[in-house]
Amino acid sequence: MRTDEQPGRPTGRRRGPRRRSDRVEAVTTWLLCGLAAAVLVVTAAVGAWVNGAATDTMRRRAAELAQTPATTLSDVPAAPRDGGLASVHGGVRWTDSHGTVRTGFTQVPALTRAGSAVTIWTNREGDVVAPPPGPEFPLVMTAVSALGTLAAGAALLALVVWVERRSLDRLRATEWAAEWRRAEPGWRGREGPRTH
């Protein structure tokens, strides 16, 4: 006998018997942690990809378009119905890169008087187009895509947790029923066959 051993103290790392449901729960917990980590990695990857694509789109659109001076044709473009001073559509006249005078409709500041100078955006053919996306465009697209991916991943994770809980509950109920069938006869004094 070793002298460093204390009496009454267990010397090994013996554990009580674990139920099958406990082992399944331990494995599924690790799998769920891995799935949660994968959702975060996928969210970060999607956000990075969308940010790069949105930045490229913004730069390409800015390179394809040109700011062009124009004159408003409408007397006083109507203000939006909500009373704000946002942009509204109004008629404008401009000269394209080939020297041709053109007219069309585009967004102009609300309450601009006819004959006022405004700046519009035109493409290489000289057609009036919507302005290119601003510097906030990549940030907004990244946030929307990351939140969408995160929400989808969270929904998937919640579904997997729900299925896991239901399966474990059924497994535990089966185990408890089996254990009760083994223990119940001893509690009722019915162990073994009775002789009369």
Rank of each mutant, 00 (worst) to 15 (best):
P138F: 00
P133K: 10
R19Q: 14
T71Q: 08
R61E: 11
P77G: 04
A70F: 02
V24I: 14
D169Q: 13
V41C: 11
F105K: 11
D82E: 10
L168H: 06
P135Q: 15
R102C: 12
E179L: 12
R170Y: 04
V46P: 05
P132N: 04
L156Q: 07
A44G: 06
D56T: 15
A146V: 01
Q107Y: 13
T71I: 14
W162R: 15
A183W: 04
V88A: 02
A44K: 00
T28W: 06
G115K: 03
A78F: 06
T55S: 14
L156A: 15
S87F: 15
T174C: 10
G189D: 01
W94R: 02
A26H: 07
S21Q: 04
S21H: 01
Q67E: 08
R113C: 10
A66Y: 12
R9V: 10
R20E: 13
L31C: 04
R182M: 07
P132V: 06
A54S: 13
R188A: 05
W121S: 00
P77N: 13
A44S: 01
P109N: 07
A53W: 05
S167I: 03
R190T: 04
E125I: 03
T103C: 09
L65C: 05
G8D: 02
T68V: 09
S97C: 12
L65A: 11
E184W: 15
G148R: 00
G148A: 03
W162N: 09
L171H: 11
L139T: 10
V163Q: 12
D169G: 09
S145V: 05
A63F: 01
R61W: 12
W94A: 01
G12H: 05
T106C: 13
G16Y: 04
R165D: 07
A173T: 10
T55C: 04
A152M: 04
L35A: 14
A173G: 06
A155W: 04
G52K: 08
